[in-house]
Design a protein around this nucleic acid. Structure first.
Length: 581
RNA sequence: GGACCUGUGGUGCAGCUCGGAGUGCACGCCGCCCUGUCAAGGCGGAGGUCGCGGGUUCAAAUCCCGUCAGGUCCGCCA
């Protein structure tokens, strides 16, 4: 409950829902919106007055000319409700305002949708009238929760000696990574700024600049397709520190996240465990494991090493037991098979465990040993089902991991909050169209000290000092120890197929800065939208953002994006090519 | 770039398979009645280009094609 001196203004004494029995007898004024009017003839009317704190009932002698959502100031006497009229469903239900004077501060048309939380309104309508949607308890709660989280994060970073520095929104284009929003320059027509995908370079330069502990709640923009957990704009807690190693950073971030969790939920989570990327992939089939449920992946590659069965002749065979899954209908299994195929699998084998043995179209092709292995996966019992995917290692893990998640993952709002650090990500992943290795994180990520020799001999085996923070299967954020030594950076660039000239043109100012004394440094960034969404039990980050965009990038309230005046276009010397060109 | 789902008075739904008059329900809105309600109650009323365009048909909310908008997912997000 907020302190009362913050509630009082020249127009009101306190918030509606802060009224209670201790206020009985006080003469007070409250301000808010009319949530409901109940009239009983010309002698008596009830007004539910709502502000963001909640509702107080005002009793008016005589009729009152107000409608829903009128803005009113109500002055009256706090009175204990008469015997038998207490409303247990209302926080203020034991009192009411009597002898009320109602001032209409603004009239209001009926809103396009009801502002109580009784029905789910179509999001299209909510977003068009977001200012009304925000008046609802649901959005009030979410955005205020977000403010609590932001506050806790700031306090945690301040307390750890971090200095908040703001970095530019207008930055230089970088021909790397995700698509950037482009901003044309008026003073230098034909030249462009971009909005930052993250303050990555800026914060590393702060390290060179001697700010050994930097943080910022940073707005970041990426011009990539939107999803339930992705918007063009998002906020991240951005951190970088000097003279540190990986464990220092994990410590800083853990404190911030656990403080935020405690502030948001009232419960401080356990210390955050960690696992390596290799473990996560092997046991959970993903680099963002959801630890709320078990259902681990099991490896049957050895059993099927010399199998006769074509469907299983692959480098890796992974198996997943689903408790009680034998009752899955054939339609459900076909659906899952299609899902697996959609993810690139050749198929999804399933084996119902029954009293008579394995029930599966494939069972008759398996030999005794193979059947026994499947029937005992993960302690399988009659009534369970075992899924198998045979493929190369990574693919098999990913597909079965996705099946695990589809079958086991509880809704966002359910179950405990299970954080986990995933460490030792590979330094490189795959190759681009020119046959060059690609950086898994970014090209300034420090290779694992034990794997330095592999950079030239077996680069895909090189682990890195990169790490992710995962909560309930959602990637909250990632970070790494950065390369601060020119010799290591050259080796990595060489492995990535980046020439000295190219490095100079793309990252020149960063590498140039490093020549003047770069401290060893490391950092992290995690998405506040996702963190708050999980705290709020929301599947969708739009629910914790005041003015989000739709999936096609539109703002239904403002109509953005829109064309700009011809004068502006001329000034920028920009013409738009016709459609289809 | 692709797959799937949704679009019906202001709001939430049903109707759509199997074509037959804009049919129904709940909330909201407007008017009247009502002195203890609180999802108030009673009576009456208004409100619709069934997203849009085309096709099939004697006849389309319903079937077909296209398109727009919203959503979920794949690709994408170093």
């Amino acid at each position: 409950m907020m302190s009362k001196n913050l509630e009082s203004t020249s127009m009101r004494d306190l918030l509606c829902a802060s009224l209670g029995e201790s206020d009985v007898g006080r003469q007070v004024s409250v301000c808010g919106w009319v949530a409901k009017r109940r009239e009983h003839g010309e002698h008596l009317a009830f007004l539910d007055v709502r502000d963001h704190s909640g509702i107080i009932q005002a009793v008016v002698d005589g009729s009152v000319d107000v409608r829903s959502e009128y803005v009113v100031r109500v002055s009256g006497t706090v009175t204990r409700r008469p015997e038998g009229t207490v409303n247990d469903k209302l926080a203020t239900g034991s009192v009411e305002l009597t002898d009320c004077v109602v001032e209409v501060l603004a009239s209001a048309e009926p809103p396009p949708f009801q502002l109580d939380d009784r029905v789910d309104i179509d999001e299209q309508v909510r977003l068009k009238y977001r200012y009304l949607d925000l008046r609802r308890d649901h959005m009030q709660r979410n955005l205020r929760l977000r403010a609590v989280v932001n506050g806790a994060l700031r306090r945690a970073m301040d307390a750890q000696g971090f200095c908040e520095v703001e970095t530019p929104l207008l930055w230089a284009p970088t021909p790397e990574g995700s698509r950037e929003f482009v901003v044309p320059s008026r003073l230098q027509p034909g030249e462009f700024y971009v909005l930052p995908q993250s303050p990555q370079i800026a914060k590393q330069l702060l390290m060179v600049g001697g700010f050994d502990r930097y943080y910022q709640i940073a707005r970041c923009m990426r011009d990539e397709d939107l999803r339930a957990d992705r918007q063009f704009e998002f906020s991240q807690l951005d951190i970088e520190a000097s003279f540190v190693d990986q464990d220092d950073v994990l410590g800083f971030v853990s404190v911030a996240v656990l403080d935020a969790a405690e502030a948001a939920t009232g419960v401080r989570p356990e210390e955050i465990p960690s696992m390596t990327w290799a473990e996560a992939l092997d046991r959970y089939g993903t680099d963002k494991p959801d630890l709320r449920f078990e259902m681990l992946l099991h490896d049957l590659s050895d059993v099927f090493a010399a199998t006769e069965v074509k469907a299983f002749s692959a480098p890796t065979v992974k198996a997943l037991r689903v408790s009680g899954g034998a009752s899955f209908s054939r339609a459900r299994l076909d659906e899952l098979t299609d899902y697996a195929k959609g993810l690139g699998a050749k198929g999804l084998a399933w084996f119902r465990i029954t009293d008579e043995g394995l029930d599966s179209p494939l069972a008759k092709f398996l030999n005794e040993t193979e059947r026994a292995a499947i029937a005992s996966v993960d302690g399988a019992q009659v009534g369970d089902i075992v899924f198998c995917v045979a493929d190369e290692y990574t693919g098999a893990c990913h597909v079965l991991g996705a099946v695990r998640s589809a079958l086991g993952s509880p809704p966002v709002g359910e179950g405990p909050h299970r954080y986990v650090w995933v460490t030792e990500f590979p330094l490189f992943e795959g190759v681009d169209e020119n046959g060059n290795l690609q950086a898994a994180h970014h090209p300034f990520t420090m290779p694992h000290p034990d794997d330095m020799d592999l950079i030239d001999t077996d680069p895909l085996k090189v682990r890195s000092r990169a790490y992710d923070l995962v909560l309930n299967g959602w990637e909250l954020g990632s970070g790494s120890v950065r390369i601060h030594r020119a010799d290591i950076q050259s080796r990595v660039f060489r492995a990535l197929g980046i020439s000295e000239e190219e490095a100079e043109s793309r990252f020149g100012f960063l590498l140039g800065a490093f020549k003047y004394g770069a401290p060893p440094h490391a950092g992290f960034a995690f998405g506040i939208d996702r963190l708050v969404a999980i705290f709020a039990g929301e599947e969708n980050i739009r629910e914790v953002i005041a003015y989000p965009k739709t999936q096609s990038g539109a703002d239904l309230m403002t109509g953005a994006p829109k064309s700009v005046a011809p004068k502006v276009m001329r000034e920028l010397r920009i013409t738009v090519a016709p459609k289809g060109s």
